[in-house]
Every structure is written in structure tokens, then in C-alpha cells.
């Protein structure tokens, strides 16, 4: 991988909670505009891993670099689409999309253009003045995804954002994420326990081992898009990843 392409560098990330060793010496790179999925067995510390990447909790040792600088939410644009519903109930759809941009003190006209773009891409025109609780759970999740992309983030982290959706809605939203990702060229780290989802979305999959987690294997997914769940190659990769998670 040529070095100038690397956007995110994770070096020797280690985390202990007291005596509990959760993450062990994790290092990897993410290229600019890459879609990386992280999968692992249940309870392997995926969420801890994400919380470290967003700087919500400090690592025991190791560092995350964005553009070769230690990551700092105040300097870099980091977006996090959380697993649980995180749209602000007191803000309308439009205001929710504006929220992060306002925090970053981005000029008003830029905010307007970006929010319009997102609203159009997500087809939320008729809901722009609605409050989240007036929408369905899936629409609420779409606001969150939209809010994250609106930041034009250096790094976009997603923590099983579709965990609570039914399968049909999942497919639909996965396609939507791919659409947004292509449109904005964002660098994405997407955490999931759903292997099929990972194979469908990722350009590269990192497989975490059980606690203390390390990167067990890296799998490149070079299938053309849109991907087909029934494509023999797709099935082969899915089985391969499943085996890796099963046998540790």
C-alpha cells in the first residue's frame, strides 16, 4: 500500500479495563476513501474498539493517526453512527442534519448546501420539518447516517447501525450507505457481527479474535458492485470469513 494513500493509521492499540484485557496491540491502516468492515465474535470488544477510535475513551496504550496527526475530534472530522437511536428528539430532521456542522462552525451557506444534498440523496424532502419520533425507526436511523455523512468526515465510524432493522430494511439501507459512500468518498470503518453484511459492504474485512482481541485476519473483498448475495464468489468469501470467526 503506497504510504500517501493512507488516511488512518492505528498503531499498537491496547486497552485494559482494570485487569480485563480487551484489545491487544492492534495495528492497521485505512486508505483514503476505503470501506473497511470489522467483524468478530460476540463480546470480542468491537464497541470498545470503536470507542477508542472516536476518542470517547482513552486507550491504555497506542494511538490513532488521521493524516499522520494524532486524532482529535476538535481538529479532525470524526463522525460516529451509533448502534442505538441517537437522533436528537428536540430537533427537526433538518436541524439534526445540521447539528455537527454547526458544532464545527461551518459557514451557514455551506451548511445549507450540504444538508440539501443529504436530504435529496436520502429522499427526506417531505420530512425535513418533522421530529424524529414522528418517523419510523428506519427513517430515524437514516437521519443518523445522513448526519454522519454531512460532516464530510475524515473518518466515519458505524457501530452496527442496522442491528435493529428487519432484513428487507437492512438491504435497502446498506445500498443507501454504499450510495452515500461513493458520492462523498468518505473513509468508513463499519463494525458489524453480521458477516453477510460485511461481505456486501466492505472492500476489506478485518476479523477480530476473541478477547484479548487482535486482528486475526484481513480479507480483501474485490467483488464488483452491486453485489449479489447468491454469487458463488460472494458465498465463498462469506463462508471463509465465517470459518475464521468460528475457529479460534
Amino acid at each position: 500500500m503506497p504510504n500517501d494513500d493512507v488516511k488512518i493509521k492505528v498503531r499498537n492499540l491496547t486497552k485494559y479495563f482494570g485487569d480485563l484485557h480487551v484489545l491487544d496491540n492492534i495495528s492497521f491502516d485505512v486508505k483514503k476513501g476505503e470501506f473497511l468492515c470489522v467483524v468478530g465474535p460476540t463480546g470480542c470488544g468491537k464497541t470498545t474498539f470503536l470507542n477508542l477510535l472516536t476518542k470517547l475513551i482513552p486507550p491504555t496504550s497506542g494511538e490513532l493517526y488521521i493524516n499522520d496527526e494524532p486524532a482529535d475530534p476538535k481538529i479532525h472530522n470524526i463522525s460516529f453512527a451509533f448502534q442505538e437511536p441517537s437522533a436528537f428528539p428536540w430537533l427537526t430532521v433538518e436541524q439534526n442534519l445540521e447539528f455537527g456542522l454547526k458544532i464545527k462552525n461551518i459557514p451557514k451557506d455551506v451548511i445549507k448546501t450540504r444538508v440539501e444534498r443529504i436530504i435529496k440523496l436520502l429522499g427526506l424532502e417531505q420530512f425535513r420539518k418533522s421530529y424524529p419520533h414522528q418517523l419510523s425507526v428506519s427513517s430515524e436511523q437514516r437521519i443518523i447516517i445522513g448526519r454522519s455523512f454531512a460532516m464530510y468526515p475524515d473518518l466515519l465510524l458505524m457501530d452496527e447501525p442496522y442491528g435493529q432493522m428487519d432484513i428487507k430494511m437492512r438491504y435497502y439501507l446498506e445500498d443507501e450507505v454504499i450510495k452515500l459512500w461513493k458520492e462523498f468518498g468518505s473513509t468508513v470503518i463499519f463494525i458489524t457481527h453480521n458477516i453477510e453484511e460485511a461481505v456486501y459492504l466492505a472492500e476489506r474485512i478485518l476479523i477480530l479474535s476473541n478477547k484479548p482481541s487482535t486482528i486475526k485476519k484481513e480479507v480483501v473483498v474485490d467483488l464488483p458492485r452491486p453485489r449479489d448475495f447468491t454469487d458463488p464468489k460472494f458465498v465463498e468469501i462469506r463462508k471463509y470469513v465465517t470459518e475464521l470467526i468460528k475457529w479460534w
Partner: peptide, 26 residues
């Protein structure tokens, strides 16, 4: 809600800004 605070925090908001934009309205 802690997740709302985390959202603002990852966007780089200062503690006072989180207080103003998340704590007060909620």
C-alpha cells in the same frame, strides 16, 4: 442520554457546547 452526549463529543464539541446544545434542550 449518554449517546446524545457522545454524538456531540465525537463532533468535537466542548463540554460547555454539549451542555448548551444537548443538555439544556433535553
Amino acid at each position: 442520554s449518554q449517546v446524545h452526549v457522545s454524538v456531540a463529543k465525537t463532533f468535537g464539541a466542548s463540554n460547555f457546547k454539549i451542555f448548551r446544545t444537548v443538555g439544556v434542550p433535553s
